[in-house]
Each structure stands twice: as structure tokens, then as C-alpha cells.
Amino acid sequence: MRQKKTLMILILVFAGLLALYAGITFYQKNQSARKISSGQLTVKNMKAITSISYNNGQDLSFVKKDGTWYYEKDSAYPLEQSYLNTMASQFQKITAVRRLKNGDSLKDYGLEKPAYTIKVKDKEGTKTTYYIGNASGDNYYLTLDDKSEIYTVSADLLSNLSYSLKDMMKTDTFPSLSSGNLKKVVITGSGKKKTYTSKSKTDMDNIAGGLGVFTFGDCQNYSVKDKELSKYGLDSKSRISVDITYKDTDSKKTKNLTLYIGSKDKDKENYYVQLKGSKMVYLSDADVVKNILEP
């Protein structure tokens, strides 16, 4: 009889432990679900964004036409599309970390005079204005349109807003060159022509000393007109042409490009340079350019 009682007690204790475990598991799942739900609280869900404007120290406004983003004040400005594509995706659908209930005044959250005011429009013509205020830990306060609701949102939403227009410029790229992948270089200008080929290792090593470290500096004109080329010494009569044949390190294919070298800037520390086929004029370090012209 005593053994039966002991067994019954053990069964009841075991059942109680099972119930307790089930209760704890349910609570944890419920709390987890609440956290996920609160992290996915939708503030706004728009169609594809077609215009974005804001001020981050300068007024910036962009429009999307035929799948391409343009700077509204100058459609010729070369924009790196990834900045605007990311921004449009972020503001198309905004999810909040939480929504404030019975909050204080807008001033208390930096929303009376917000750090950012972002105006967007989607392809259906729906317009929305977002206001971003003070930081709240790893998040920021946000409200929109009539400012009737206040939310906290991830700081990721601000990731692209701090970039200047210059930061978002899409510039030309210059390939990685060395004596190992250079095949031929022809320099023409001032009535002279000099050819370097891979048949001479010394020639290639010398010319690679300049071309291997060449980079584009600050852009001086992103949409140069033919009539403007002469002030940079880049008109056809004045410029020096550097025709380069090389083996691309990624595709392993033989490629060609032409670099134009113009006059020095007023400080004599840089040369004006341009890639053939590009509308962009850059500065490049005078010592590096000299090593190309006089290897």
C-alpha cells in the first residue's frame, strides 16, 4: 500500500512538472511572438517609390524615370543608383520597433523641428512625409503626415540620408594594371609617339610604375561639353593620348582604353584627365602622371 502511495505521488509530481514545462514553453513562445510582432509593426506600405526629397544640409530631390534615378535639378548628374534604390526600398515600407502610447509632445522627441523631413511619392501618386527626430538608444523617433502617431524605428533608416550629392556621384573606374597584364601602351601628343610593348620587360616595368598607381581624383566637371575641353587642355589639339591594351584580371579578356591627359591645374599639383568616351573630367596627381609620360 505504501509503495502504491509513493508511486501515485511520483506520478502527480511528474505531471505537475510537465504542466509547468508546458506553461513556461508557451510563455516563451508568446513573448517571442510579441517581440517579432512589435519589430514588424508596419508604419506605412506604399507602392514603388518614384520620387524622394529631403534636406541633409543641402536640398536633395530625386525622381525615377524609366527605371533610372535622376537628380531633379540636373538630370545629367551621374548618380550611383544603389544609393537611391536602397533609400526607395527603405521608405516604401517602414516597420517600427514600437508605437508610443500617450507620448509626450513632439518637442520632447525632436519632432517639432525634426532632423530630417523626407517627402516621397509612389507610382500611383500617393504622397507621404516622414519626420525623423532624436535618437532613442539604437533607434530614432519617427512620425509622419499629420504627426498623430509617434514610433521608434531602426537607425538603418538613416543610413543613406547623410550622404552628400558628391558622395552619390557615379565615377569612372580605372582598371588594375601592372607589368604582368599590360600588353601595349602607345603615348601620342605634342607631335611625338612612343610605343611600349610586352616584348620589352624593362619598358613594361617602367610604364607600369605610373599606370599601376594611377587613380582618378576629384571630379572637376561631370558633363563636360566639347567647347569646354580646351580650358582643361583636353581638346584634340592639346591633349596627350595614352592608348592602353591589357588583359583584364577578372575576365582574362584583352581590353583597350584610352586615357587623355590635359594641362596642369593652377596649383601645378595635378593634371586634368579624362577617359575616352566619358563626359567626366578629373584631377590626377602630377607625379603619377609624370611617371606615365616619362617612365
Rank of each mutant, 00 (worst) to 15 (best):
L257K: 14
V185Y: 02
K255F: 01
L182R: 03
I261G: 13
K252H: 12
L177D: 07
V153P: 02
T245E: 15
S154W: 08
L257T: 08
I207Q: 05
K166T: 14
L257R: 13
S230M: 01
K227D: 15
N256I: 02
S230Q: 05
D218N: 10
Q220K: 15
T254E: 15
S162T: 15
S230Y: 03
T197H: 05
S154E: 10
D226G: 06
K255Q: 12
I207C: 08
G233A: 11
Y141S: 08
V242N: 12
K170G: 14
T258H: 06
D156I: 07
M204A: 02
L177Q: 06
V242T: 12
Y141R: 08
Y196C: 03
K252N: 14
S148T: 15
Y163Q: 04
K231I: 07
K193W: 06
L177T: 10
P175H: 11
D248M: 04
S190R: 12
D243N: 15
D248Q: 07
K199E: 11
N221I: 00
S238P: 11
Y196L: 02
K193Q: 14
T245V: 09
P175I: 11
F216T: 09
N206F: 01
Y141V: 08
Y140C: 07
T173M: 13
L259N: 06
M168D: 05
L211V: 03
G210M: 01
K199C: 00
L211P: 03
Y140K: 09
D205H: 05
G212D: 04
L211F: 00
I261P: 14
D226M: 04
Y140S: 10
D248C: 05
N160T: 12
E149R: 13
T249F: 08
K147Y: 09
L182A: 10
K237H: 04
A208K: 03
S176V: 12
L157E: 01
A155I: 05
I261W: 09
L234A: 05
K231V: 14
K193D: 09
S154R: 11
D156R: 08
T171M: 09
S164E: 05
L161G: 09
Y222E: 03
N139H: 12
I261E: 08
S164P: 01
L157W: 02
T173D: 10
K247H: 04
N256V: 07
G210S: 03
K192S: 15
L182I: 07
K225D: 14
I187R: 04
